[in-house]
Nucleic acid binder design. Structure first.
Lengths: 226, 226
DNA sequence: TCCGGAACCAATTTTCTATTGGTTATCGCG
DNA sequence: CGCGATAACCAATAGAAAATTGGTTCCGGA
């Protein structure tokens, strides 16, 4: 029992791949054509292909074909598509996971100019005359903290997160009549976070940011009381 | 000059919109059909539509149609654009910020099926016969951990991060001759991380993931010694 | 001069067809 | 019976063709 038809198929397939020396991500012939070219029945060829796929050398997909290399994970960073498959709670949980760490990192590497930018945002948010204005400056503040990390990639990811958040929250906007009360919890919390960053106290910045977002989350669930 | 044909068109269009009471983002009839229904010539209707568009009540696009509400801002995060403005070090710092928290969250909410998936990836990575195969299963493992958080948005962000990482690292691939040695540091570290997740020990999972990535980072800077 | 009508243009969606990996049924051979 | 090859069929995908739609141009008539 040195070789049956199926093992022969695997050997021939390996030989074919070695001989072809295909570049990465390139497509190899469809199964029907390949089975004919190698003189191997399709079921046997499929088993051989399954082995190679298990080994991670190729990947296949119905309607697309068989490709060399590893299956490309979805690179479609389409905001709308993401927003369709998520919800406000998930957005909040993601912010809660990300932003405390961002604040901690900002505390380590932020420059005085960054801190000044944060202070400006806080001041503008305090003098906002509508919820829309307030939210605008609140967003700018959180982005300023992200900028302070001096990590463009991280910033891009947070921008994506924010775009999704806007897309998800779309439609259920606060009535633009009133404005945030002077004792709104966020004001003091924003101050404390920026102070921690200025003090280079990463742990405190992280904790305060987490608590701040938890308060925001609570207000989201029970929005209309002020 | 109380009303000419064009003003009449605007009035009729407003009446139509009020009567229809269309939900947000919904499409209204194409111009040709609408002009016939309202008994208004198309040029006049178009001017009326232009007014409404100027007012921000509707938006239009060739081939798509006319819609109620405000034009959705097309924010498709372009992987290539991000990759151009970053570098491997930044990618690593971002992973170091994100993935420990992801591991901690996974430890809290992962299901046995998720853990089994991780174990499979580890096993496959151990039996890899080339660095490419190893990296493939390493990626799948890290993604399995992200999936275990049951947070689709977080998963999408990590996929974006990975796409950027690939784009940045592109070209400088390890030679595919050798294979990872059996005592490669990642094997034991992967095992420990998944064990911590299975034990629902979030703190341990976070710490182990951070240490693991720090080792990976060190190996990236001084790559060819094994 | 100005507006309505029609034809035309370009971007987009929709529809149809061909392709492709995956599955199932059937037959042949040992 | 068991195993595998052949063929037919299925579902997902890509690609081309056709239809749709907002925008533009041109011309005739009031």
């Amino acid at each position: 029992m040195t070789s049956n038809g199926q093992n022969a198929a695997l050997v021939q397939l390996r030989a074919f791949l070695a001989a072809a020396d295909l570049p990465f991500e390139s497509r190899l012939p469809p199964e029907r054509e390949l089975s004919e070219r190698l003189g191997v029945p399709r079921p046997a060829l499929r088993k051989a292909l399954a082995v190679l796929e298990q080994e991670g050398q190729i990947w296949r997909h119905v309607g697309k074909g068989t490709f060399v290399g590893s299956r490309p994970l979805d690179t479609h960073a389409d905001i709308a598509a993401i927003a369709r498959r998520t919800d406000p709670a998930e957005v909040m949980r993601t912010r809660l996971l990300l932003e405390p760490e961002v604040a901690a990192l900002a505390a380590i590497v932020a420059s005085p100019a960054h801190v000044a930018e944060m202070r400006t945002c806080i001041q503008r948010s305090r003098s906002a005359t509508s919820w829309r204005q307030y939210e605008n400056w609140d967003n700018r503040l959180h982005r300023a903290i992200a900028e302070a990390t001096r990590n463009g990639l991280l910033l891009a990811l947070l921008d994506t997160l924010n775009a999704v958040r806007r897309a998800v929250t779309w439609g259920r906007l606060r009535p633009d009549r009133a404005s945030p009360p002077p004792d709104h919890h966020s004001f003091a919390e924003h101050d404390a976070i920026v102070a921690a960053i200025e003090d280079r106290d990463a742990d405190r910045a992280r904790t305060l940011m987490r608590e701040h977002l938890e308060h925001v989350e609570r207000n989201l669930l029970r929005p209309r009381l002020s």
